[in-house]
């Protein structure tokens, strides 16, 4: 994979000797840029709250991506600033946004029918854990004093054609979030198709977990951090 050199550190266009495509782990913005590049032109996409929202900063106009926000809009534009701010025009994170030409509004049941009916091409979500078979845990820590809040996470996880996860590979304590079996409460079963992390891009599916590329580590070094068997993805599988 070659990545345009927009000044981002550490990404080499020309490392083809292995699947390591960067000599350093990727920062949040570099990872968002990579996800944006991987979104097929013409797709309808929902970006989750938090890190996935950064992806919108790197979508190119020629990709002709239409962003969906689950509170009832297709054709969402960038975050509103100054005089653009309108309390009636917000995204799922309740941040004021703008509308692009061709935008449409609809009620909540229609908006979730867009997800649940399998009409969205891709959603990008954050995660606490993802299992080797693509189970997703991203809504609840399960802590006894936590107030649970699920929002649209379960609908997105089960409804979009492809579910991409963006997360750091390791917790602050250095524990892998890619796990054999999720220990946090599940959001969806077998729903994740790709995992973008600071250290590698993983593909999940019936063939187990494949590694498309690594950042700042070799496949062997990556395997030492992750408790599930990894194989290198074939070029055709990317």
């Amino acid at each position: 994979m070659s990545i345009q050199s927009n000044g981002q550190a550490g990404i080499h266009a020309g490392i083809h000797a292995g699947i390591q495509t960067s000599d350093k782990p990727l920062g949040r913005d570099d990872l968002a840029r990579l996800v944006a590049r991987d979104i097929t032109s013409g797709s309808f996409v929902n970006l989750g709250i938090g890190q996935p929202t950064l992806v919108s900063n790197y979508l190119e106009p020629e990709q002709n991506i239409t962003l969906h926000t689950e509170n009832g809009m297709l054709g969402m534009g960038p975050e509103a600033t100054g005089g653009q701010i309108d309390g009636d025009l917000i995204n799922a994170g309740k941040i004021p946004v703008t509308e692009l030409p061709g935008a449409s509004y609809f009620h909540h049941a229609d908006s979730f029918a867009i997800m649940r009916g399998g009409h969205l091409d891709i959603c990008v979500l954050g995660a606490f854990q993802v299992s080797a078979t693509g189970d997703l845990a991203n809504w609840h820590t399960g802590a006894p004093d936590a107030i649970p809040a699920v929002g649209g996470a379960m609908d997105l996880a089960t409804g979009a054609k492809d579910v991409f996860v963006m997360m750091t590979l390791l917790t602050r304590e250095g524990v892998s979030k890619l796990v054999e079996t999720c220990t946090y409460p599940l959001t969806g079963v077998g729903c994740v198709t790709r995992i973008y992390t600071d250290k590698a891009v993983f593909l999940t599916g019936p063939d187990g977990v494949q590694v498309r590329e690594t950042f700042g580590c070799t496949l062997e070094e990556l395997q030492a951090m992750v408790p599930v068997p990894l194989t290198a993805a074939s070029a055709a599988g990317t």
Binding site: E70, H108, F112, M115, R116, P148, G151, G152, M154, D155
Partner: peptide, 13 residues
């Protein structure tokens, strides 16, 4: 509290 996934909430309504 009855916690309902957002799409289920909308569709149940």
């Amino acid at each position: 509290l009855e916690l309902v996934p957002q799409g289920n909430l909308a569709e149940r309504i």
